[in-house]
């Protein structure tokens, strides 16, 4: 056996792992729980509430606008029907008098 073989055997000799090595390896193989800071959860909830409130308020605005437009359309239609009716009455009156 020459010097080289001796060195190689020495380098590759079987040794025990350091204390706690197995536990450390096993701990790393398990997924670590993600820690989200509590303030971000709060911000996310606040943002969701704000969005929901905004959406509700926008819907209220749209609904009130649609109602206003509908009543305007009916009143305009009503006024035009009124004009037509008055003209018909006037024409009838003139026809009867003539």
């Amino acid at each position: 056996m020459n010097e080289f073989d001796k060195d190689l055997r020495q380098a590759l000799r079987r040794t025990d792992p350091p204390v706690g090595f197995v536990d450390r390896v096993l701990a790393r193989t398990h997924p670590q729980p993600v820690h989200i800071p509590l303030k971000w959860i709060g911000i996310a909830i606040a943002a969701c509430l704000l969005l929901a409130a905004g959406r509700f308020e926008y819907r209220q605005y749209e609904g009130r606008k649609a109602k206003r437009e509908l009543l305007f359309a009916l009143e305009l239609a009503g006024s035009k029907l009124n004009i037509a009716q008055q003209k018909i009455f006037e024409l009838n009156r003139r026809t009867i008098h003539d």
Partner: peptide
């Protein structure tokens, strides 16, 4: 000019507010 267009969903929405 006045332009009012109320169709399906908007009419239903207006109806909810009556």
């Amino acid at each position: 000019k006045v332009n009012v267009t109320l169709e399906g969903p908007m009419l239903q929405l207006a109806s909810q507010f009556l």
